[in-house]
Design a protein around this nucleic acid. Structure first.
Lengths: 197, 197, 197, 197
DNA sequence: AATGAATGAGCTTTCATTCAT
DNA sequence: GATGAATGAAAGCTCATTCAT
């Protein structure tokens, strides 16, 4: 039913991001998004099945671009540990570049109902797959330990980055998020323990 | 105004957890909670200021007990790395023990409105403080590296555990969450890298 | 926000008068008014900000027409005492013509909350101004005494008419309200005292 | 059922006046009145049938005293026109003496539901009867015109005084209400018209 | 394709009254 | 007589979605 292309399709998605970032998820009514996109309320339903579809599409579009950009950048690098650093960098850098998107992603969209959550999780899988690939590569290259459970490592990497961005957004972005790239990478690679001397 | 003690107070909190876990946040009406607690709708307002207050109180009560139990257990141990293992264990074990609570905490309560979120974040701080204490102790004992940024380490520990539990809940708890204690602890301590030989 | 024009706007106002007159102020729920107006509950909120706005608008619309009709009629007359008689006549005649409106105005709307009261008082001022004009004209024409305090005279005129209509409504309109025009006018003009002979 | 005597009965009535004057009719909950009277909520129902009964009783008690005091004073005077002046004076003076009572009587109690209104009107009749008596006496004494309709005169007297007090209360009692006694009396007696010379 | 007026289901909270103690 | 904890009915308002134009 919904025609998921065209200029208006993009306009509506951008409008949704803007409205949600500005007014919060619970104040992001369809009519407000329509006004921001300069279309009629009904027009939204020509491009999307329902409101949840707007949110899920929004997340997929943005997340797709995010993953692709990250993938392109890390594949320029050889070593898995360098790729991991680049992934951490891209994650934090992209979020710090787009204030609205960070708010929407880390705070507002988490309040959405189960249907939207399901769509979001679906879109997230692509990113988790990319993380897995880095881990597997690291093991192959003998850079990461063989006995590291890749599912556990993936949770650590995603969980830490996610928590870092959320915490940064919640603290009104008072510090430079990208400055965390090295400390985080270092911690992932070397762990907490003191090196034997 | 609200009398935040007594048997009914506890009943209502338990009923809220049950209803939210069973029907989801958006289907957890006051009347449903009241029925589950075997009180009249109005009775809830003798013990809580409003619905948000029920949810925040619920989180504070449970989280307070959670943090206290964890603190008591880890303080029986000497070394910071052992304490960290115990904290990981307590986090995962307590969540795996209480199916409803895990769902409420990881999924449903995240959908709540800003007022509830603020109350929840407040309650979470106590837990983050406990994590910080373990990190500081580790540095003092020379068990953890001095040059580890404690804020980054805290984000890693909390972010990883949180992601692990969410992931486990979302996958319908198909595996034993406690089995992740060792892998996670190992990863936190030793990192991803291969040991020099 | 509210679009205060159109056929539906008028329909809702008429429906509100009817429902309030029939069921009383405290039984005039929005849903009842909507049903009477043959619109959905939500439609009311396209034309009015809230329930109080319906009531205030209703009063303003009706009172505005009332004052205008009265003004047009009295301005056809020269002498202030004739104008006063016409004002008394119009007041009593218009009320006796519209059973529902009289009930709403004299009984039901007086039960309304402070917000509505404030709006009503605002609308009443226009009528009081008209009364004042008649008094001033009378003084200019040498028909009314110069030493009559116009504020006191205004209270007498409005207070008496208001009491007359209220009393008539409360007594289930058993007599002809318009028959009071002459006695009231006579009393206003000549007072209680016996003429010196 | 209700025992309409005793110290607590009086306390509750005084408390009701105070609470209504202070917080307004719509904020005068039974529990608030009970607290002000230093009794339990349930105790009110030992002395009154229901909330409406409290309000009606309150009005009757106060109005009874008001009428009696007025009657005693005017009966000291011979002439009906003097009695009328005294009645005007007593009405305005008593209201201006008791701020709370004036607010309750003129503003707040008018918002009450039909049951209370009916009780109030009942209590008012005694006062209207007193006004009638003055008018009849005036006619007998040849002080007031025979051809004055007493019902109309009564409406004028009560309507004007009522409007005067309401207006004074609404204007935050910025002027001295008693200063209106002479102007009002003069207007009632002599009317608006210029004396023939 | 686009519009936007109309729909109507759904829910938190208040408060007069009761009754077991 | 006095208490006050408990009751539960009742209603204004929002907003995603539709559909006639």
């Amino acid at each position: 039913m919904a025609k998921k292309t065209g200029e208006k399709y993009q306009n509506i998605i951008e409008a949704a991001v803007k409205v949600i970032a500005q007014h919060g998820y619970h104040q992001a009514q369809v009519s407000k998004i329509a006004r921001e996109a300069s279309v009629a309320d009904g027009t939204i339903y020509l491009y999307f099945d329902n409101k949840a579809d707007v949110l899920v599409s929004l997340f997929k579009e943005k997340m797709g671009a995010f993953v692709q950009a990250t993938r392109e950048r890390i594949e320029l690098l050889e070593r898995a540990d360098d790729r991991l650093r680049e992934l951490i960098y891209m994650h934090l850098w992209q979020m710090s570049q787009n204030r609205d998107w960070a708010i929407v992603t880390q705070i507002e969209l988490r309040q959405s109902d189960p249907v939207v959550r399901a769509g979001i999780n679906q879109a997230l899988k692509e990113y988790l797959k990319l993380i897995d690939e880095v881990i597997f590569l690291g093991k192959e290259q003998g850079v990461f330990r063989e006995n590291v459970e890749h599912r556990v490592a993936r949770k650590m990497i995603f969980g830490t980055l996610d928590e870092a961005v959320t915490s940064w957004v919640m603290n009104d972005r008072k510090y430079n998020l990208v400055s965390l790239v090295e400390p985080i990478h270092n911690l992932f690679i070397n762990g907490l323990k003191v090196e034997k001397q």
